[in-house]
Computed example of a mutant assay.
Amino acid sequence: MSRLTRTLLLASSLASGAAAQNGTQGEGLHSLMVAAGKLYFGTAMETNNFDDAAYQAIATNKNEFGMFTPENSQKWEVTEPTQNDFSFTQADSIAERVLSNGQLFRCHTLTWHSQLPPFVANGTWTPETLTAVLTAHITTVMQHYAGQCYAWDVVNEALNEDGSLRSSPFLTTLGEAYIPLSFTIAAQADPSTKLYYNDFNLETTPPKTAAALSLVRAVQSAGAPIHGVGFQAHLNVGQTPSRADLAAILTSFTALGVEVAYTELDIAHVAPALPADEAGNAQQAEDYAAVVGSCLDVEACVGVTVWQFTDRYSWVPSTFPGKGEACLWTEGYEKKVAYERVVGLLREAAVVEGGGGGAGGGAGDGSGSGNGRWGKWVDFFRGKLEYVMFDAYTPRP
């Protein structure tokens, strides 16, 4: 796919989201989220879901989802399994499916301690050689997807629960400077995309939250661009912070001039409360509403992505024995009480936003421009379109 085609698809996706701001266009998670003044409601997807017709019927419904993140296909072990041997087949198939359907693509992830190929994890490095490898990887992957990604998770899960930096080949060889270095390389590789730090338990673990705030400041002080912080929000039923507490945490980051998003949301029932009973499902619904509501309460929170929408493909049971039923749909694709609770919350917020009473109000003109919150993004990509129409962009493999 050429870079021009990629830019056209992303611009179309953004325009579709902005146009939906004038009404719900049917009632689903994404259309109502946009009508409430946000950019998207999204989900994770992988290629193993492609042959499931019931799954795809929901996933491709633009009322339900407007943003997709590949669970594993863009991680280093997949995209560069051996040094300088790049493979994009899996992630390309997701990107084409998503963008051709007029939905947005969120890219994940570049510098991470986990799911590294052996040549990185087990290599013997000097600062010079590892910097060269990191630069080549980030540059090649990001330039391959230039014009496709709303945002990239540039650095993922760099912090331990006590706030210290997590051990990795990058920390061992380059020290903490690997973090701003990654953002600097990423900005040079694709200046048009948002650059995020992404981590889990920022919602529940104060030392880690404080360290993440310091990490953002350190990247900024180093002169590297950082545009957002992703809150993974892998939470447990009955142990989810309140809407007000979550909003306060988000605001502590947006005060630094970055946007925020929930990037991997799921809320698991924990044994012995499995299978969940009526009370457990009601609590899960309130917990989901607290998370989504906190994003609504913070102007610079741009959206929510669930880490799979159905229990059929949830990573939770296999990774965390004794936990499960964490998603908004059952294994049989029935909507849970939590889904209905979130839709009700968003419906109320959309009415307020449509009446001009919500934060960040303002309507577009239906073409994707105007004074709406996301009009500036559509205008940006429209300008980008006008540029590429008159410039020689060569196709990329």
Results as ranks from 00 to 15, higher is better:
2 S>V: 05
2 S>K: 12
5 T>C: 02
6 R>P: 03
12 S>E: 13
13 S>K: 01
18 A>Y: 02
19 A>T: 08
20 A>R: 14
22 N>A: 09
26 G>W: 06
27 E>P: 00
28 G>N: 04
30 H>E: 02
31 S>P: 09
37 G>W: 01
38 K>F: 05
39 L>R: 11
39 L>D: 01
46 E>P: 00
46 E>D: 15
52 D>L: 06
53 A>N: 07
56 Q>T: 13
60 T>S: 15
63 N>T: 14
64 E>H: 13
67 M>T: 04
67 M>P: 05
69 T>L: 04
71 E>Q: 13
75 K>H: 04
75 K>A: 07
77 E>I: 15
80 E>Y: 08
82 T>N: 10
82 T>I: 09
83 Q>D: 12
85 D>R: 13
86 F>R: 07
95 A>F: 03
95 A>N: 06
95 A>W: 01
96 E>T: 15
98 V>T: 14
99 L>C: 06
103 Q>V: 08
105 F>D: 00
107 C>W: 00
111 T>G: 02
115 Q>L: 10
120 V>A: 09
120 V>H: 03
123 G>I: 07
127 P>A: 04
127 P>N: 05
133 V>D: 06
136 A>E: 15
138 I>F: 02
142 M>Y: 06
145 Y>W: 08
145 Y>R: 06
149 C>V: 03
162 D>F: 09
171 L>K: 05
175 G>A: 06
176 E>T: 13
177 A>G: 05
179 I>H: 00
179 I>R: 00
183 F>M: 05
183 F>G: 02
197 Y>S: 08
198 N>H: 05
199 D>C: 11
203 E>K: 06
203 E>A: 11
204 T>A: 10
207 P>E: 02
208 K>R: 12
220 Q>R: 07
220 Q>I: 09
223 G>Q: 09
224 A>Q: 03
231 F>P: 01
242 S>Q: 05
244 A>V: 15
247 A>V: 10
248 A>E: 04
248 A>G: 06
252 S>C: 05
255 A>G: 07
256 L>K: 02
257 G>I: 06
261 A>M: 10
262 Y>P: 02
262 Y>C: 08
265 L>A: 12
268 A>M: 03
270 V>S: 09
271 A>I: 12
272 P>M: 11
274 L>Q: 08
276 A>W: 03
276 A>R: 07
277 D>W: 11
279 A>H: 10
280 G>I: 11
280 G>H: 09
281 N>R: 15
281 N>V: 11
286 E>R: 15
288 Y>G: 04
288 Y>E: 04
292 V>Y: 02
293 G>W: 00
294 S>L: 03
299 E>W: 07
306 V>A: 01
309 F>Q: 02
310 T>I: 12
310 T>V: 12
317 P>K: 10
317 P>N: 08
319 T>G: 09
321 P>T: 09
323 K>A: 14
326 A>C: 10
330 T>S: 15
330 T>P: 02
333 Y>K: 08
336 K>T: 14
343 V>Q: 08
346 L>F: 12
347 R>A: 14
349 A>C: 13
351 V>E: 12
351 V>Y: 06
352 V>C: 04
355 G>C: 07
356 G>Y: 12
357 G>E: 11
357 G>H: 12
362 G>A: 04
364 G>V: 06
372 G>P: 01
376 K>V: 15
385 L>I: 14
385 L>G: 08
386 E>Y: 07
388 V>K: 00
391 D>E: 15
397 P>E: 14
397 P>Y: 14
